[in-house]
Design a protein around this nucleic acid. Structure first.
Lengths: 141, 141
DNA sequence: TTACAAATGAAAATCAGTTTCATTTATATT
DNA sequence: AATATAAATGAAACTGATTTTCATTTGTAA
C-alpha cells in the first residue's frame, strides 16, 4: 500500500480502487497536477473512474495537507505535491512556450522584510519569469 | 471629465454613458475590483449597463495599464487600481483581499544568472506574495 | 455474512467569463 | 444640423471547469 493510501486509510477514508488509481498518478506526477490532467491519465487506464471522483479525491488530499493549491491565474485549479521539497518556479519562453524550472529565488530576505514592515504572515509566493529562449530570441514573435 | 475618461478618450475609445458609469465606480473604489461587484454597483444606478460591457471595459483598462489583475485564488478575476506607473508587485492578504504594493524585488541578479545558464533573454517577471494581514492572522477561516 | 455509512458516477446545475450578432450610438465629417 | 461609419452595446447562447444531486454500489467493522 502506497504511502498516500496508508495515510488516507489511517484517517478513516475508505480505500476504493478509484482512489488507489488516482493516488498512483498523483504520487508519480512530477509536474503540477490539474484535475483535468489527472482525470485523463487515470481514465486511460481505469475508464471506470469518473471526473467527480478525481475532484473529490483531490479535495481530500488538500484537506489532509498532502497537496496544496497553487494559484497560477488560469481557470483551472492546480495543485502540487506538498511532500516535495523542491520549491521551484518557471521561466517561460513567450515565443514557443517552453518552460524551464528553476529553484533558487532567494526571496526569503524580501519576505522577512515585508513581514516586518506590514505585519503580514507570509504563506507563499508566485514568481514567473518571461523571456525568449535561445531558439526564439533572434526571430519573430 | 474624469481622469480615467480623459485617458480613454485620448486613446481613441468612445466615451459612452455605460463606460462613464463603470469608470465612475472604478475610480471611487478603494478595494480590489471584481467584475461581479462592479456590475452590481453600476447596474444599481444604471440598469441599462450589461455585464458584457463591464468585462469589456475592464479589459480596456487592463490594456491601458490603468488597473492590473491580482491572483487571489478564487474563480473570479480581481483587479486593483494602478495608482503608480513604476514597477511594483503585490502582497495579497488571502483573508480579506487587502493588497499592499511593494517595489523592491531584487530579482536582477537571479535574472542575470538564469539568462547566463539558459540562454534566455529575460523580458519581465511576475511576482506576487500571499499571506495574511495583521487583522486576519489571528483569526478564523 | 451482514449492515450501513461512505463512496461512486451519470446527468444536471452552477458560475464566471466569452462569443455572436443584430441593433444602437459617439464622433468625425460634411 | 445632418450624415456616415466604425465602434460599442446587450440579449442570448455558449464554454469549460467545477459542483451538486441522487439513485446505486461498495469497503469495512461487527
Amino acid at each position: 500500500m502506497s504511502k498516500l493510501a496508508a495515510i488516507l486509510r489511517q484517517q478513516g477514508y475508505k480505500l476504493t480502487p478509484q482512489r488507489r488509481a488516482i493516488l498512483g498518478v498523483v504520487a508519480l506526477s512530477q509536474e503540477h497536477l490539474s484535475p483535468a490532467a489527472i482525470y485523463t491519465e487515470v481514465h486511460r487506464k481505469h475508464p471506470e473512474v469518473g471526473r467527480v471522483t478525481v475532484y473529490r479525491t483531490l479535495e481530500i488530499l488538500v484537506r489532509l495537507g498532502l497537496i496544496c493549491e497553487v494559484h497560477t491565474g488560469g481557470k483551472e485549479h492546480n495543485f502540487i505535491l506538498r511532500a516535495r521539497e523542491d520549491h521551484h518556479h518557471h521561466l517561460v519562453c513567450s515565443g514557443c512556450g517552453r518552460v524551464v524550472d528553476f529553484a533558487s529565488c532567494h526571496l526569503e530576505r524580501l519576505e522577512r522584510k515585508l513581514s516586518r514592515e506590514t505585519g503580514f504572515t507570509i504563506d507563499e509566493h508566485m514568481l514567473e519569469i518571461h523571456g525568449r529562449c535561445p531558439q526564439c530570441t533572434g526571430g519573430e514573435k
